Amino acid sequence: MADNPLPPPDYELAERRTLTTPSQVQALSNPLRTAILGLLHERAASVSELATAVGRPRSTVAHHVRVLADAGLLRVVRTRRVRAIEERFYGRTARMFVVSVERDDDGELPVDFNDFEVAARESADAFRSGQLWAFLRHARIPQERATEFWERLAGLVREFDELPRSGDTVYGFAAGIYPTDHPRLADPGGERS
């Protein structure tokens, strides 16, 4: 475990950014790119540092960093001179990205992007080893209450994002609220509303 945890990250960034274009959402749909964004919650990093952290070739990581930068999700936050080369350090443009993309004429989202699908894949090994902590609950509530609850969850996500980085294990944190077709009881008096 690290003795001196650092407050994340070591550069200025917006609290929240709304992604409104299919290219921005598509940039997030690649697991390597989401890993890069996750690493940059800790601190700014060069392409070489990112390549070492994810165990991929520098050229591959450079391509994915370019995709993220072109989509406006990353930016150069500082540079340093190393011999005759200027080394760039990249950082996120926001702590949290919120997807708000218009559906196409068929009502479909432009790409397959579902954080719970990612969390399900990532959590499989933790489940098998007895290290998955999760809850799933259902409640019949009005839309306004669901929105209020989501805002409270978003605050908890922000708190998780801002934790000082230390330790040897990277934990995932998934939160969501969504409508279901879960069965419900009739209202007292026999009517369903």
Rank of each mutant, 00 (worst) to 15 (best):
A62C: 04
G72I: 01
L73Y: 00
T79L: 01
A119L: 03
D125Q: 06
A174K: 08
P183S: 07
V82S: 15
E122L: 09
A14E: 12
R80D: 08
N30D: 15
V54T: 13
E144H: 15
L153I: 09
G130I: 06
S59K: 08
F135I: 09
L156C: 03
E102H: 09
G155P: 09
P142T: 00
G167Y: 13
E159N: 05
R56T: 02
V67G: 03
F127L: 12
R128C: 02
G130D: 07
A119V: 01
R83G: 00
H63C: 00
V82A: 09
G167W: 12
L28W: 10
L19Q: 01
G130Y: 15
V118W: 11
A51G: 05
R88S: 13
I141V: 15
V54P: 09
S193M: 02
T60P: 08
L73N: 02
Y178R: 10
Q26L: 01
E12L: 09
L163F: 07
L185F: 13
T147V: 03
R145I: 11
D125V: 04
M96R: 14
R83D: 12
D106R: 15
V98G: 03
E191F: 15
G155D: 15
P7T: 05
F173P: 08
T34G: 08
V99H: 01
P164D: 04
L40F: 12
P188R: 10
D125Y: 08
